[in-house]
């Protein structure tokens, strides 16, 4: 039973590190800022969550005396709450700076609607 927990935890940790590595490779390879934000911040969210779950499972020996699980749970909830907010703010800043989209982009409904005066330019009040 205990060895099973440890092996499951190690598998989770490996999957998490691999996901983080994928995020970094995406950060290097993607053509423009928007796609880099996409792959760079979101794959790393899942990677961090999986790694923390794995590490929490691997510390099964002293779950009762020492507070491992609670701290890892707080970290996971914290990352789930803050990561979309910070990456969304970054993406809006990139759009407000008018950094051009890559040549692969097919459609930009937001620019069309800004030109048609349906929405305002994203900037601060």
């Amino acid at each position: 039973m205990k060895e099973t927990l440890e092996i499951i935890g190690q598998i989770f940790l490996l999957m998490g590190s691999f996901s983080l590595l994928t995020a970094a490779i995406g950060l290097l390879r993607m053509p423009d800022v928007y796609n880099r934000v996409q792959t760079g911040t979101k794959a790393s969210t899942l990677g961090a969550i999986l790694s923390f779950i794995g590490l929490a499972l691997m510390t099964y020996e002293n779950w009762v005396e020492i507070n491992w699980v609670g701290r890892f749970a707080v970290l996971v909830v914290f990352i789930i709450l803050t990561n979309p907010v910070s990456s969304h703010v970054l993406m809006r800043a990139a759009y407000a700076m008018k950094i051009p989209l890559s040549k692969l982009t097919t459609v930009d409904k937001l620019r069309e609607d800004i030109n048609n005066k349906i929405v305002e330019e994203p900037k601060d009040e």
């Binding site: 950060l27 934000v37 990139a94 700076m97």
Partner: peptide
């Protein structure tokens, strides 16, 4: 650009 650097920092 600056945003690239901040994204890298976040990651």
């Amino acid at each position: 650009s600056v945003v690239d650097r901040v994204v890298a920092f976040d990651s």
